[in-house]
């Protein structure tokens, strides 16, 4: 029984890894107060999703989808192409967020989210 579970996990190793990465990113983002660390966590989460997406199109031993004699198995190119766009989006998000962190540091003198909230005087409702 447990061998079967292990085999299934191994068969889905890419998906498994991406879910673990996603959870690491999500957890770090929620628990860390440093804004830069939050952004790094965000990037880990994004990477997890990219891995997941690319893994959908992957086939064991697959080649790039160029029609050459003797090449039989192809990797699905669509997810890879999409993730290229996804990476660009993630880069622009990160760049913009870092610019905002610089501004925050200028205004508040800190990049610790709790301290910023303390300086602002909190009113969440």
């Amino acid at each position: 029984m447990s061998v079967e579970i292990l085999e299934r996990l191994y068969g889905n190793i890419y998906y498994l890894t991406s879910v673990i990465l996603f959870v690491i990113g999500f957890h770090t983002m929620l628990t860390h107060r440093n804004l830069i660390k939050k952004l790094m966590a965000l990037n880990i989460m994004d990477t997890a999703i990219f891995l997941f997406f690319v893994a959908i199109g992957y086939r064991e031993g697959g080649q790039a989808p160029i029609l050459l004699p003797g090449v039989e198995r192809f990797v699905n190119p669509v997810p890879s192409a999409l993730i290229l766009t996804g990476i660009v989006i993630s880069v622009s998000f990160t760049a913009f967020a870092l610019a905002l962190v610089v501004l925050l540091h200028k205004h508040y003198g800190t990049i610790d989210s709790d301290e910023i909230i303390a300086i602002r005087g909190k009113k969440y409702v």
């Binding site: 804004l35 967020a97 905002l100």
Partner: peptide, 8 residues
């Protein structure tokens, strides 16, 4: 100050 924090 407030708008930068809110937008972040």
């Amino acid at each position: 100050k407030e708008s930068v924090e809110a937008s972040f």
